[in-house]
Design a protein around this nucleic acid. Sequence first.
DNA 1: AATCCGATCAACCGCGAACGA
DNA 2: TTCGTTCGCGGTTGATCGGAT
Length: 368
Amino acid sequence: MGSSKCCEKEGLKRGPWTAEEDQKLTAYIQLHGHGSWSTLPEKAGLKRCRKSCRLRWINYLRPDIKRGKFSLQEEQTIVQLHAFLGNRWSVIAAQLPKRTDNEIKNHWNTHLKKRLIKMGIDPKTHKPRIDALGFPTRHGGIDANLSHMAQWERARLEAEARSAGVSNNKPAVPNHVQPKKSQFGCLTPRPKCLDLLRAWQGLVTGMFNFSDRDDLESPGSISNFSHRGFQVPTAGINQNAAGEGTLLPCIATNSYTCDELDDVGNWKRCEKFNQMQEFDEALQGRTCSTEDAGFVDRIYVEGNDYEVIANFMGDSPGTLVGVPASYSSMELEISNGSCSIGCMADDGSYWDPTLKFMNASSSDSSVF
DNA sequence: AATCCGATCAACCGCGAACGA
DNA sequence: TTCGTTCGCGGTTGATCGGAT
């Protein structure tokens, strides 16, 4: 486990923790909180360095962590987020409740990475791997699907590049990828990148779903993805004579109305939706559920920067609502199949997107 | 039964960022 | 602005386990 450093110089203990040490650390933190990690070991009566204590608590002893097998959903999320974020395990872990970055990192390195490699997908780029002759690697009968995968991946990278390029002063990975604590003390529901990636979730689902069972231990064909349900959060948009875009209530099945939209960068999302058309015939029984509530994408309409949010009420199809991107702190609550959204601006003012949307629709104003 | 070997995962280290003096 | 300290992240190591030989 590496050469000794901070622990050895002061005669501190290293290696596996004993039950007694765990008990001491847990008892101390439950009573006092961890406070300063540098002083904790001494106060807690542990002959361990601060790093060792912190790691033990965060990765093992903390009460709000889940251990054991990763679910299909969790694995999909990891793969999707890794495609966007790379090895930013702490950010990925923030989107997987009760999982630690260390656990996710280990799971990636020991399971997911190998599974992707087996499928002929480069785990670093998430692109189909190219052999020495420049041809995509062959793996069973999945070539056709890999080409689809490659198209999706291209779309993903293009979207990523655009989002970085549209605003030079914005980081390539937006800040809101980082989970934020809102005034209500809750984490924002999820980063937009999850939604960008949701479009190809069906492919990933195909990669990780095997026949009729959810057993993940044996890789299966990805060729059956087209027969599966494919949840697609979709956008409806209307242009008036002046060329202004107005968001419409959107039934959460595909509504590819984007062809006529401008080609100057507004409504970037639509390009992605157009690419989804080629899957149109293959996709059946598309429905959108409350799982799709939350961020959909960032759009730029009339020079304004908006977040688009799928908003679901009860069991009815969702609507899309727009929120100024400056309203960074979102609240989303799902209960009894109903989803409500509210947003807090940095100055503390509150934005009710549903209300704004309805007002805007009735007044025929631009966008909202 | 003994040994080997690959897989797994807890734990450690180095480094950069954040922060305060 | 600089410097020292602390924290947290990502990469890596090595103990352990289980299956194969």
